[in-house]
Computed example of a mutant assay.
Amino acid sequence: MRVDLFDFALPPENIALRPAVPRDSARLLLAQNGHITDHIVRDLADLLTPNDVLVFNDTRVIPAQLTGRRGNATIGATLHKRVDLRRWQAFVKNAKRLKPGDRIDFGADVFATAEQKNPDGSFTLRFLGDEPVEILLDRAGTMPLPPYIASKREIDERDAEDYQTMFAREDGAVAAPTAALHFTDELMASLAAAGIGTQTLTLHVGAGTFLPVKADETDDHQMHSEWGRIEADVADRLNDIRASGGRVIAVGTTSLRLLESAAGDDDIIRPFAGDTDIFITPGYRFKAIDGLMTNFHLPRSTLFMLVSALMGLERMQAIYAHAIAQDYRFYSYGDSSLLIP
């Protein structure tokens, strides 16, 4: 499909620069049975049914944004995928000033060697010393806020908490699974009281999620791979829920993409551990999920393509037109939607 079919005009004032406070006071658009209705996130228990299950991503965002020096050159690095205990792939700002073998000083006694330049333009960085890389990043890194926020304001101490979900357990993401940012202890209690279950999986979201689609056709776009895991007991529970007539609702496109990666053509979800580069566009047949809770996405993005695959492109265009007209807040710190095809 042509990428320009997924374009739309978004007023800059609709881009959220801070999250709602409290988190579950964000607005929630429900699209179901051909209708659009407006709610807030704390209404969620009333919008689902007993025996539904919400699937969350428990990845934890690491301070993966680094700024350093290579000689007189300033080098910016955004880590996006772990290679091993000491090496990460990174997108590099001012990459023309960096070549394999160069050493970068990130400050705070944190150094890395640029080992190689990869076909996608990223570099493989090897962090020096014996301290775990996680400790080095805590010392020298900052939260990797999306460009549409970081370009408009300074990253500050609030973001260390704001850009982390309540489910964050497993270190490794360089972008938050933002649909889950809306959840609070109070909301989880109301869901449990309504008989709505929860399960977790892990997908370490990479910085590739922010990259624009530069190709003219969707078939020509290459997704970056991300590492994920679904435990056997989680897969079994989700299959049992669907077999008994319940619905699996993915919280966020990251959860959805991993569930779909783990499902076979028989619609059975299987245990999974490894990389996925699944790219979901209109025409895809969903095998593992019955609905999606997700924030509002960028024009021409792979995530808007995904929700268009779930609901239909014309339907999503109408949903987004409603959201813009009603002043919903877009992107990572914005409002949310519940999409039930």
Rank of each mutant, 00 (worst) to 15 (best):
R300K: 15
E170N: 11
D24V: 02
R42I: 05
S255R: 01
R60I: 03
F8W: 02
L238E: 05
H322A: 10
Y328G: 08
Q222E: 06
L339P: 07
L125A: 12
R2G: 04
Y333S: 13
E260W: 09
F106E: 06
A232V: 02
P299M: 14
H80T: 10
K214D: 07
V83P: 04
T294V: 12
I241A: 15
M143I: 14
G246P: 09
R169K: 14
Y284I: 08
F304T: 10
R42K: 14
T253A: 11
S261H: 03
T184S: 15
A321E: 11
A160H: 11
L310F: 02
G101T: 11
T202M: 13
T294D: 09
K81M: 13
N118Y: 01
V92I: 15
K214A: 13
F127D: 06
P212T: 01
A232K: 14
R18G: 05
G206L: 09
D105K: 07
T59W: 01
M143E: 07
N51D: 15
D277R: 14
R82L: 10
G208Q: 10
T37M: 11
I196D: 03
Q317G: 05
G208P: 10
G101S: 09
R97T: 11
P11T: 00
P11G: 07
P144L: 08
R329L: 06
V248M: 09
T74W: 06
H297G: 11
D156I: 04
L47H: 05
A235W: 00
E13G: 06
T276A: 14
P146E: 01
E154W: 00
G101V: 02
V110N: 06
P177L: 11
I196P: 12
A215V: 03
G195H: 08
N72M: 03
P119K: 05
G208C: 09
E13H: 15
P11F: 00
F127L: 12
S122Y: 01
T198G: 15
E314W: 00
A325D: 14
D105G: 12
V248L: 12
T165G: 13
A207L: 12
L339F: 05
I241W: 02
Q89N: 14
A73Q: 10
I149H: 02
R315C: 08
I104P: 11
M311T: 07
L238C: 14
I324G: 08
L145T: 00
T254Q: 04
I319C: 13
